[in-house]
Design a protein around this nucleic acid. Structure first.
Lengths: 198, 198, 198, 198
DNA sequence: GATGAATGAGTATTCATTCAT
DNA sequence: TATGAATGAATACTCATTCAT
């Protein structure tokens, strides 16, 4: 493969779909590898490590994911989507908007807390993470806003809570610590309790 | 002769800190410069930049502050001390333990929010920041604990709140963001409200 | 597909080392440059100097030779190998084991004496030279041992001479001196003479 | 003392002798400290360490011993002198010139082997050691030459042995190794044996 | 499309030596 | 004289990113 593209393949049929299949498979492999590396080394893992784990050249990573943020987004897309979709669902199935909000925040925290370094990346100002911020905001902010609005409308939480501030704050609370004493969930509990209308 | 000070000298006047005068002045300059650089580049600023800003050689930085943590601690010592001392004082002057706690947290947040990168350093696992962690914990944790205990004893807040978790959490919330939309204070408000005994 | 080489390729021609051609050439250049720099600045020459001499970036040096020892070994490998292989050969062609031993030591000394700083590195305790020591010991010690054994068996030299001590000692004798008056060979002669069974 | 010279002293008598006494005492302290530090850290020990061990400022070291070599020479002067004087003495008391030579070399080796790093410094090309070389050469070379001449005249050793080469070679052999397997004395034995007229 | 070789900016840290006090 | 503060040169090493093959 390395230096000898499989000309044979392209011979029979339109190369495009064929290649796409290859590329897609390749991308899957890559995402799986990245996910694996992220778990152990965090989302800041050296590009080379990820490439090695995927059995792929560095260039391939960059071709598929020009930015580290692109890669991170791709790796966690499913879970972010699931989290996003869980919002409206919870709103329907929960006993109250506030319960839905609390449950949803739990989901979000569970997600972040288990993604080594993700919260840190989310907080980073570094330009290479712009796309990551954008994606999270685009996808999750509306959900958070909807939940907040519903709870506020129901008079269950104090009005005027900014969904951006909430998301960002929760993200910050989830920044990992080596120190076992710290427990992000405990802090988030306080936040959730604090939102309630007294 | 270092080991055999001519006691005669010390008898008359404060002869001891003679050379020190220079060095002390220098250290002041250095701290001021460091503080300045920290504002713009964060507490992670390259040593060389700090030296340059102070108009001294790199070696001078290392002489006065062997570790970056030493420098950071020195730069913020006054404010940390003030914050630490404010705890008991607030407890006496405030209308209630919870009010004292809230006021103290405000002070802490004010401090952190205005120190670019400090919250980040506080959260860092890097060994070079160990002394920094230690200092903050040593100095502020007991204060936080005292305030929490008092408020809990007064039945104003839910019992069992871990001061370490609280400090760390608040620290995390204060990690700066370029995004103007984020406001750590708003989050901290929620936390404070959440601590209340409903 | 780093992990799944298309075996088909390798079947026809030496397709494998395609890219390698460049890299290999580069490595040659690098080794040549290093050798050149070693002559003038010794094997302790700054990495940057070597990179500059080779007209490559610093990173390239590290890619090819992660450790300074790796570089040194690579630079002198041919000569060390030749020296190692000369041992058995000399044993066969020489008039006596002692003659073979003496001739071999001459080769060794010739090698060391012309490699500025090498003897010094060989003597250094610094960890970064571990691989260098290991290589020399691995490759040359058995040869020295064989020669010593043969000569001892022939009753030509005093028994019980430790090959390690001999190698190390000769290495030390070859540590370069700016002073023209010193002549390592003269000292080695004495050592060789001293080994003889009187 | 540090900043307040004892003006009282100079008041009564000619300051010169007085000061000299002080200075001499100071120098003794300093030499003792240096010797102590040399044992553990070698003759390359940081100047600051030596100053600290002596309870003296760095400047004082430089005042008394402008060059590191000056300090080393001063520290070992007694022993070098003793070694130098032992030459002629041995020549008189020994059973033969060769025996005297061997005994003297033993003394020299004993000296070097117990002085951590000294042999290395002796071998160094660095300019700061020039005075060290000079002193050793000035003081010991004539002795070695005398012994060699006597032994050569007696027909006990091969003629034409260069005392400089011998001294330097023995020095090199004494360069310390962490590796316990190396034993300088064993090598020197061979050299001594090799000098004999067969 | 894939590969991976090359690049080189970015920093911490040590220590000999000088010189103002 | 002694002190010790200040200086700053000297270097190793990592890793993101580009681009020729």
């Amino acid at each position: 493969m390395t230096g000898t593209p499989t000309e044979v393949d392209g011979a029979h049929r339109p190369a495009a779909p064929r290649k796409r299949a290859d590329a897609r498979r390749n991308e899957e492999t890559l995402l799986a590898a990245a996910a694996r590396v992220f778990v152990t080394s965090g989302v800041d893992a050296p590009v080379r490590d990820i490439a090695a784990a995927a059995g792929v050249g560095i260039g391939t990573i960059y071709r598929h994911f020009p930015t580290r943020a692109d890669l991170i987004v791709a790796v966690y897309r499913h879970q972010v989507e699931a989290c996003a979709e869980a919002g409206p669902a919870l709103l329907e199935t929960s006993s109250s908007p506030h319960a839905a909000l609390a449950a949803w925040i739990d989901l979000f925290v569970d997600f972040l807390v288990t993604k080594h370094g993700l919260a840190g990346a989310l907080q980073s100002d570094h330009a290479s993470y712009d796309a990551l911020h954008a994606y999270f905001i685009d996808r999750l902010l509306p959900v958070a806003a909807q939940l907040l609005d519903a709870a506020a409308a129901a008079g269950e939480i104090r009005p005027g809570l900014d969904p951006y501030v909430l998301m960002r704050g929760i993200g910050n609370l989830c920044i990992a610590s080596t120190d076992e004493r710290y427990d992000a969930r405990r802090m988030v509990e306080l936040v959730v309790a604090g939102m309630r209308q007294q």
